[in-house]
Computed example of a mutant assay.
Amino acid sequence: MTAASRQPSGAASYVNTHQIMVGPVRRKSLIALFALLPALVVFCAFWLLPFSRLIMMGAEADPSSGISAYLTILTHRQYLISLATTVGLSLVVSLVAVAIAGVAGFFLARQRFFGKSILVAILTFPLAFPGVVVGFLVIMLGGRQGALAQTSLWLFGERWMFAYSLAGLFIGYLYFSIPRVITTVMAACDNLDQSLEEAARSLGANTWQVIKDVIVPGIAPALLSTGAICFATSMGAFGTAFTLGTRLSILPLNIYGEFTNYANFAMAAALSVVLGVITWMALSLARRLAGGNLGASV
């Protein structure tokens, strides 16, 4: 037998190589499937099935209008006002939080001074508070017996209050949104290449040009992602709004009222689906604009 006859043919060699390669790939696929199985079970049991049930329940007839709860939301003024108020308030909170905390986060990331760690800890401490505590703090500031009311009564003879209105809700939402922005912006600034700023200055750019052309584009994904997270958090925040007053016309309180006060499960389900869809659209848009870095620092 010649040496050529002892060597495997091209087809046989390809089959052997293919079998060798397929084995590890198949094993890795099985390992990945088993690793994802618990997450898939939890996802289906605690999100997919309940949310599917919510969607179907929202399509049922609303007792007050006799038509689908989704159509009732689109045709009744009170629900449209609640929807617009919730979206508008959440959007304003997100923009203001990004504007204020973005500047603060950049300053804290670039400056070194005594007590910085303590200051950062104080600024991020509101993350530890539940919504009820945040609402109580707003009442202590702008309620009837709050600091502002007592000071205005002493100076002008009348009580100034804002706690039980959209202004109070705005302060509360802003209070727990700012720490989220600060921590994200600080992480983004730490990863920003400072040599780009030095190159811009060497080319004659002033401070504002460096900020506009280098710094802001560099941390833009972080600003977009944290703004979207603030928007989503404000859309669904319940504890703060419930503490400040159940008469505020926002979606979380409307869902609570329809479910507990009127047992209108169809409307509560429809409002929940609408809130979830709007929040998901905002997060998806921010992820697209940020280049898929939603939740990342840069």
Rank of each mutant, 00 (worst) to 15 (best):
A149H: 05
F259G: 10
L49Y: 13
D190L: 14
S29T: 06
Q150V: 00
I211V: 11
F51W: 15
T260S: 13
M140Y: 12
L223T: 02
R110A: 08
N261C: 01
G291M: 07
T124H: 07
R77D: 14
A200C: 08
L137C: 12
L169R: 01
V274C: 09
G204L: 06
A220F: 11
A12G: 01
A290H: 11
A188R: 09
G58A: 06
C44I: 08
G245V: 01
A69I: 07
S117F: 13
V103N: 10
V25F: 14
L275F: 05
R110H: 13
S117A: 15
F136W: 14
G135N: 04
M21T: 00
T243H: 12
D62T: 06
S177P: 06
A163R: 02
L248W: 00
A220C: 13
L30P: 00
L40G: 03
P24C: 00
E197K: 12
G295N: 14
V210W: 04
G291S: 10
Q19T: 00
S94V: 03
T75V: 02
R144L: 09
I211N: 04
L137T: 02
Q194F: 12
G227Q: 05
F107R: 12
S152Q: 05
I55E: 08
M235K: 05
T207D: 12
L49P: 04
A263Q: 14
R201H: 09
V133I: 15
Q145I: 01
G115P: 11
T226I: 08
A188D: 11
P63F: 01
V134I: 15
F46L: 15
L294R: 11
A4P: 02
S225T: 06
G135K: 03
A188S: 13
R144P: 11
G172Y: 02
L275T: 06
G239C: 07
E198Q: 15
A3G: 06
S225Q: 10
P252T: 04
S117I: 09
G146V: 02
Y70R: 07
L89I: 04
L74G: 10
Y70D: 02
A268L: 07
